[in-house]
Design a protein around this nucleic acid. Structure first.
Lengths: 249, 249
DNA sequence: GTACTAAACTGATGCAGATCATGGAATGAA
DNA sequence: TTCATTCCATGATCTGCATCAGTTTAGTAC
């Protein structure tokens, strides 16, 4: 048996449920609950339900009635929209501690995006009503949520800016930096992006085709800026990528 | 003296200040204050300051320290980001009753976008701290603000989706519909978009060049779907535009 | 080790839309 | 009225990236 060449280490194939310890730990980690005490977290924990998914499962589809807010306890989830062409557009990639789903307090609203597990996932869910109750009870939490959503809006605007004014190469460089920042880990092959990351997915994130992504990635590799293989990429020279990405200050 | 051909009727060229009546009226109109009573509005009004701008003025630049939240009382403002190429990317076009600017409660944050008046404008401003105080005092207001920001995030995601997967023609058609929906008025020439709207600005909104925009607009005109002239466009057949925009449900 | 499969790479070709360039028309000022 | 300015239309050309097609390689199962 040959040695695995992929340095990526996420290996959760079974639908995943998480221990009570993990649940409480994650709720503490969530940026908008982090200011609360143990007792309050424990109480809030009562409101949450647990759901397991395996890689590839859909958590919900866009257009479904938005019943719950989700928080990832373990695994990775991508938010996407389907294009008429059949290709998907990835809007966000979420990691443990992040929330998504039904945020709107409007009672008739639907999910705007589709959420799909890209590893096996344990998610905590809370009904819209219960979440709203939490927000009214702890105004500081509401303030934090508002800040986080504002931050996402800013990120979305940055993406619009990029799509409007930058080349495929620049968008790919920037996306790699963003991913490394979010889920990169130091590794002998470089700053490894710890997600099974295919060329197809990278293409969905950068509004290009897998072919173009592959060409650009190959070029970056030839330039000695990255290290890459099947479903993994590691950055060896982030500064060079930053250079060509021309991040607007 | 020749007769003007443009049917657009926004004519505020002097920097504009607004009457106390208008101020109170606008604060009532703002979606997140609409549930409050007169007394509360009057009190909140104390926290706001008034600023006048004339067409072309910048309200703030991206990167400036984010000190205030703005609400438009009169006029129109565009939010934009500058691209390194020199061309701007328009992110939003705001009308009376809408808010923008410093929403984040983080004390060291900066404005993420540049705001420019495209007519003469009267804006109400409130310091970040005062706004935060209002939010903690009236939790319902906070909830409404959260909903509104969530709505903007959804709109931004829709834009990303469009830029990623639709043609210039489709994006322009969709943008025209969006604008007509926001600020269109019935008129003998059709559903008139009541903003001085140049080809350049439309190009900034749709991530195309003015030339491409001009060609597409000309084609729409030949097809009999719109009526257009210098800095104005009126929709005569919105259904046809909706058809080609292929709005994803 | 071999066989199989999905992912990745790479070449050839085509096209949407950017870019470059020019003429014409609406508006405001003198 | 005339002029200057700004906006718009449209033709000609160019190019980045999509598309189409085929080959190679990494990872898995046996």
């Amino acid at each position: 048996m040959r040695r695995r060449k992929t340095p990526v280490e996420i290996e959760l194939t079974e639908p995943h449920l998480c221990s009570m310890d993990l649940r409480l730990h994650i709720l503490h980690e969530v940026p908008f609950f982090s200011a609360l005490g143990h007792d309050q977290i424990a109480e809030i924990n009562q409101q949450f339900h647990e759901k397991g998914f395996q890689s590839g499962d859909y958590l919900y589809f866009s257009g479904d009635p938005a019943e719950s807010l989700f928080i990832i306890a373990e695994g990775r989830v991508k938010l996407l929209r389907h294009a008429t062409s059949g290709k998907d557009v990835m809007l966000d990639l979420l990691v443990p501690g992040e929330f998504f789903g039904g945020l709107s307090t409007a009672s008739d609203s639907s999910y705007f995006e589709t959420a799909q597990a890209i590893t096996s996932v344990c998610a905590l869910t809370v009904s819209r009503e219960a979440f709203r109750t939490i927000l009214t009870r702890y105004p500081d939490v509401g303030m934090r949520v508002l800040d986080l959503v504002t931050g996402r809006l800013e990120a979305a605007h940055a993406t619009i800016h990029q799509l409007s004014s930058q080349s495929a190469e620049q968008r790919i460089a920037f996306t790699l930096l963003k991913l490394a920042d979010k889920l990169g880990e130091a590794h002998e092959v470089g700053l490894l992006i710890q997600t099974p990351l295919s060329r197809d997915e990278l293409a969905e994130m950068t509004a290009t085709t897998p072919e173009t992504t592959s060409r650009v990635i190959s070029q970056f590799q030839r330039d000695g800026w990255i290290n890459t293989g099947r479903e993994w990429i590691a950055l060896t020279d982030p500064a060079a990528l930053l250079e060509i990405a021309e991040i607007p200050t």
